[in-house]
C-alpha cells in the first residue's frame, strides 16, 4: 500500500542540537549533547536533577551560549561557532517552571506581549481561558496560570515550544489532568515541542519520544514503550519504571538463572545481568518452589509481592493469587526480560 503524497514528505525540521558542549567554570553541564525533533513531535528530556537538561533547554532558547556545537531551529542555524541569534529572534515559545507571568499585566496583556492583539483571543480559547483575559495572574489558580503561560508562548506562532518542568508546581490530581490537556493543546497547535522533566510519569504520559539524560549526555532516545521495554542500561531501566536485576548465563535463545531458565532474543552470550519489571514476574504457589514470599503489599487492583531466593530479591506486581501468603514458597514465571552485559551500569 502506498501512502498519499503529502504523508510521504518528510515532516518540517524542528530543533536540532549537534555536539553541544557547555561548561560552567569547572563543571561540565553538557557534553556532546545531541537532540533532534521534527514536525509536531513532543520530545521529553528526562533526567535526574543536575543532569544538564535545563541547560540544554536554555541553550535552545538562547539564554545560554554553547561553548561548542551547533543548534538549529526550523532548519535555521541559531548557534554555532560564528553564529548566535539572540533569544528575541529565535521564534521559540518558552514556558517557565514558575510560569514567569508578568505580574503587572493582565492575562490578555501577558498573552499579547509578543503577538498582535488579534491573536490573543484565539490563543486564550486554545487553552480554554476565553473569559479570563482581564484577570491578573495572581487571581488565577496554578493550572490556569500554566495555561496562560502556554497561551503566551503559543500566541506569536513559534517554530518550537519549550517547557521547563511544566508540572512540578501542580499537585498530583491536577497534574494528571494538565498532562492530558497540555498534550492536546500542543498537538492542536502542531508545533515541535521539547519539555524537560525529572518525573518519568510526565515523560511517559506526555511525550512521543523520550530522551533520557545523565551527566550532560543523552543515553537513549526512544518512544515511551520502547524505553520501558528495552532500556539501554540498568541505570536507564531503574530510572524509568521499577526494575530488579539478577545474574544469569545466556546461551542460544535461553538464559539460565537461579530462578530457572527463561527464553530471550538477545545476541549476548555468557555471563549477563537479567533485568525484569515487577509486572513481568508471575509467582505460582508450589510446595517445593525455589523462591519465598517475604512481603505482600495490597493495593486493591493489584498487589506487590517481594520474592526472595538466596541473595536475589525481586518484586512482582500481580492480581489476586488464591491462597498466597507471606512465607509461602513459589515458582517464578517471567514473561519478558532484558539482558545487559555483566558489569554494565
Amino acid at each position: 500500500m502506498t501512502l498519499p503524497p503529502h504523508e510521504q514528505e518528510s515532516p518540517p525540521p524542528g530543533i536540532h542540537c549537534h555536539a553541544v558542549t557547555k561548561r560552567f567554570g569547572v563543571a561540565t553541564a553538557l557534553r556532546d549533547f545531541e537532540l533532534e525533533t521534527s514536525g509536531s513531535m513532543i520530545l521529553s528530556l528526562l533526567g535526574p536533577s543536575g543532569c544538564g537538561k535545563t541547560t540544554a533547554l536554555r541553550i535552545i532558547a538562547g539564554f545560554e551560549r554553547p561553548d561548542s556545537g551547533a543548534v538549529s531551529i526550523g532548519g535555521e542555524s541559531v548557534a554555532a561557532d560564528d553564529v548566535f541569534v539572540p533569544p528575541e529572534n529565535r521564534k521559540v515559545g518558552m514556558v517557565f517552571q514558575d510560569y514567569a507571568l508578568f505580574p503587572h499585566m493582565t492575562v490578555a496583556e501577558n498573552v499579547g506581549y509578543g503577538a498582535p492583539s488579534r491573536s490573543v483571543e484565539p490563543a486564550l480559547s486554545l487553552v480554554g481561558l476565553d473569559r479570563h483575559g482581564s484577570r491578573m495572574p495572581h487571581e488565577l489558580s496554578g493550572g490556569e496560570q500554566q495555561r496562560v503561560a502556554l497561551a503566551r508562548a503559543l500566541a506569536p506562532g513559534p517554530t518550537a515550544v519549550l517547557l521547563d518542568e511544566p508540572f512540578s508546581n501542580l499537585d498530583a490530581s491536577l497534574r494528571d489532568r494538565m498532562r492530558r490537556e497540555v498534550r492536546h493543546i500542543l498537538k492542536d497547535a502542531g508545533t515541535t515541542t521539547v519539555f524537560v522533566t525529572h518525573d518519568q510519569e510526565d515523560a511517559l504520559a506526555m511525550a512521543d519520544v523520550v530522551a533520557v539524560m545523565r551527566t550532560g549526555t543523552v543515553l537513549q532516545v526512544a518512544t515511551p514503550l520502547e524505553l520501558y521495554r528495552n532500556p539501554v542500561s540498568p541505570w536507564v531501566a531503574s530510572f524509568v519504571g521499577e526494575s530488579d536485576v539478577f545474574a544469569g548465563t545466556a546461551g542460544m535463545g535461553s538464559v539460565e538463572t537461579a530462578l530457572g531458565t527463561f527464553p530471550h532474543a538477545s545476541p549476548l552470550r555468557g555471563e549477563v545481568i537479567v533485568m525484569v519489571r515487577p509486572e513481568w514476574v508471575h509467582p505460582s504457589p508450589a510446595i517445593d518452589g525455589r523462591a519465598t514470599v517475604i512481603e505482600q503489599e495490597f493495593f486493591g487492583h493489584d498487589q506487590l509481592l517481594v520474592l526472595e531466593l538466596g541473595e536475589t530479591r525481586l518484586r512482582s506486581r500481580v492480581g489476586h493469587v488464591p491462597g498466597l501468603a507471606v512465607g509461602d514458597r513459589v515458582d517464578v514465571g517471567i514473561d519478558e526480560l532484558v539482558l545487559f552485559p555483566k558489569g554494565a551500569a
Partner: peptide, 28 residues
C-alpha cells in the same frame, strides 16, 4: 524573577525593551 525578563526576550523583546516593559514596572 529573572525568568520574567527571559520570557520577554523569548517573546521578541530586546534587552532594553525587556527592562523597560517588564523590570521597570515591577520596580515602580
Amino acid at each position: 524573577n529573572p525568568a520574567l525578563e527571559e520570557a520577554a526576550r523569548g517573546l521578541g523583546s530586546g534587552p532594553w525593551e525587556a527592562f523597560r516593559r517588564i523590570t521597570l514596572p515591577q520596580l515602580r
